[in-house]
Amino acid sequence: MKEETNYININKQTWNNKTDVHIDSEFYDMKGFLDGKSTLNSIELELLEDISGKNILHLQCHFGQDTMTFSRMGAKATGIDLSDKAIERAREFATKLNLDTTFVCCDIYDTPKYIDEKFDIVFTSYGTIGWFPDLDKWAKVVSHFLKPDGKFIMADFHPVVWMYDNDFKEVFYNYFNVEPIIEEETGTYAEKDAELSAKTIGWNHPISEILNSLINNGLEINCFNEYDYSPYNCFNETEEFEPNKFRIKQFGNKIPMVYSIKGTKK
């Protein structure tokens, strides 16, 4: 299928188109961030612990808010993203904030061609691995960049969430990675009424595929957690049951919405 083989260019264009809309959105609260607000959640902070002085590689950083938050926390941070528009804006914000944060634009699979160093921590979070057809190639990149005993930290939306249609009325997609999911979407999770229309190509990955890809590429899994809420109000049909904790109304706490992983490079 031609669209599938061209998924990188299709998705890159979509994320380029979303970048400025996201920067201007209430969801990303750029003013708050520029004024010093941290963009990290307790889910990932508990796994990261003290990162002062650590060298961190942030995969799929969008326009770099979390990456720059790492810099503010005393880490030496490098952010990678497919979208040249997002990386351009990330560099602008880092300069404005006088932060020594590095940003590189490339496809994640190609990152070893662009960076020649090892890291204490490799980090990725929220809405990331669904853009990859092959998790073994992704995990090879994670493993490649970690120093011996380096830590991999990940938080993402649970694959159970991606089984449902947009309004959570029926199980619409396969839990397992059986085929590319090609969608035409309007708006964006950060600004649902935005005048955006875009094609996306993604893949669902079950938990077993995620964990085994990491294990098979030399990581020891130290911790795997599941959460019955999302720290972001980015889905339809949600309710906020505690500050900054969102669930699907009709499901309550019956389904997992987020998971996190901590692994160590052997």
Rank of each mutant, 00 (worst) to 15 (best):
4 E>F: 14
185 E>H: 13
248 I>Q: 08
28 Y>G: 03
50 D>A: 11
182 I>N: 02
131 W>Y: 08
141 V>C: 01
263 G>W: 09
241 F>G: 12
30 M>P: 03
37 K>S: 11
61 C>M: 01
141 V>Y: 00
231 P>C: 11
266 K>A: 08
22 H>C: 14
128 T>H: 10
241 F>D: 12
169 K>M: 13
111 T>W: 09
187 G>I: 07
203 W>F: 00
179 E>Y: 15
143 S>G: 06
75 A>W: 11
131 W>S: 07
151 K>E: 11
15 W>D: 10
230 S>T: 15
46 E>A: 08
219 L>V: 12
109 Y>N: 02
185 E>F: 05
39 T>D: 08
240 E>M: 15
17 N>Q: 05
42 S>H: 11
136 D>H: 12
7 Y>M: 01
20 D>V: 07
158 H>D: 04
95 T>A: 14
61 C>G: 00
227 Y>E: 09
62 H>M: 11
229 Y>C: 06
61 C>Y: 03
255 I>A: 05
183 E>S: 12
235 F>N: 10
144 H>M: 02
236 N>E: 15
76 K>S: 14
168 F>W: 11
71 S>V: 04
225 N>K: 15
260 S>G: 07
108 I>T: 15
131 W>P: 00
231 P>M: 03
135 L>R: 09
8 I>G: 02
238 T>N: 10
259 Y>Q: 01
225 N>I: 09
3 E>Y: 11
91 R>T: 11
233 N>D: 11
105 C>V: 10
13 Q>Y: 05
185 E>T: 12
246 F>N: 09
210 I>Y: 05
31 K>M: 01
72 R>K: 15
45 L>D: 13
36 G>Y: 06
15 W>Y: 13
261 I>C: 07
99 L>F: 07
212 N>F: 12
171 V>L: 15
